[in-house]
Design a protein around this nucleic acid. Sequence first.
DNA 1: AACTGTATTCAGTTTTCACTGAACGATTTT
DNA 2: AAAATCGTTCAGTGAAAACTGAATACAGTT
Lengths: 168, 168
Amino acid sequence: MTRKQTSEWSAACRSFIEAGGHTTQLFGLGRILGQLYGLLYLSPRPLCLDEMVHELKVSKASVSTTVRQLERWTAVKKVWVRGDRRDFYEAETDFNLLLKQGVLATLRKKLETAGVQIAKVETALQAAHANGSRNPDSEIIVARLKKAKQFHGQIQGLLGNPLIEHLL
Amino acid sequence: MTRKQTSEWSAACRSFIEAGGHTTQLFGLGRILGQLYGLLYLSPRPLCLDEMVHELKVSKASVSTTVRQLERWTAVKKVWVRGDRRDFYEAETDFNLLLKQGVLATLRKKLETAGVQIAKVETALQAAHANGSRNPDSEIIVARLKKAKQFHGQIQGLLGNPLIEHLL
DNA sequence: AACTGTATTCAGTTTTCACTGAACGATTTT
DNA sequence: AAAATCGTTCAGTGAAAACTGAATACAGTT
């Protein structure tokens, strides 16, 4: 990537990087995220910011923020290069690790906030009940909320299940 | 919902519906999607479009498109009401079924298109190789692409794994 | 201390996307 | 056949998100 290379090879690499961008965009993450990870994934050596800027033809600001986002997800890590004060990054190539620490972790967090929402509704419901309010459909509503809560707990348990980690 | 009811109960329902909107928004899906499903989920009887419009205070266009989106995910289904030519919808209350047929199915589809991307890169890579192009980093690139492809296959297998369905 | 090379932040711009209003088409009722 | 009732489609709007250029901050060098 950093050296000049035959057009065929670089074409294949560009194709991979572009595919990465498409994929992340497909999942609602940005375009650059996938491109950047793809670039680092194929690179045989760590790259500094300006190299990434040059390869992807995007602004330095985008690279700076996106690479740190990838770092938070443990998808890339910063590496030291002796005698160079620039920041170099390389990709974490273990996808399984990445899936566990990155994707599943954020999924759990979102599930958590969803649980908070359910809890809120529960208090509202208890308030209605304690208040002596009567409603012909009360049983149905209570039952369905209960079911929703159970499902939430089930999914949380599933994501915490060591079996999942074992499958990866 | 359709009948008048005490303020406490409707407050709890509105809270649930709002929570649904928050949750779907959290996952990158629209706000209305979650609200609409929440409304139908709590409703003891099927609702027609105008009832949903009235409850959620959104446009009929939004309800029309969103409810069909939910239908594609088998999250709701259209039901016939005798002597009424309007379309009525009710929620699928089995979350497990919903997860399998809805979420996992779309996930598989996205994985599929990602696989197409990888295949494209592979042909580009073979072209480079057949062309006799030389590159010092070729082994690394080939190896990493292979690894990526393996991972893709692994995930596809995991989503097709009957064990997953069993866990739900 | 001034300067150079680096990364980060921030205000502004472009793009994307959920959502709407109004027009349309289809079907039923008068 | 005219009117009424529904559902869908489509161009447009507003807001949020992605992305950029320029300013800033920071560390090392002269």
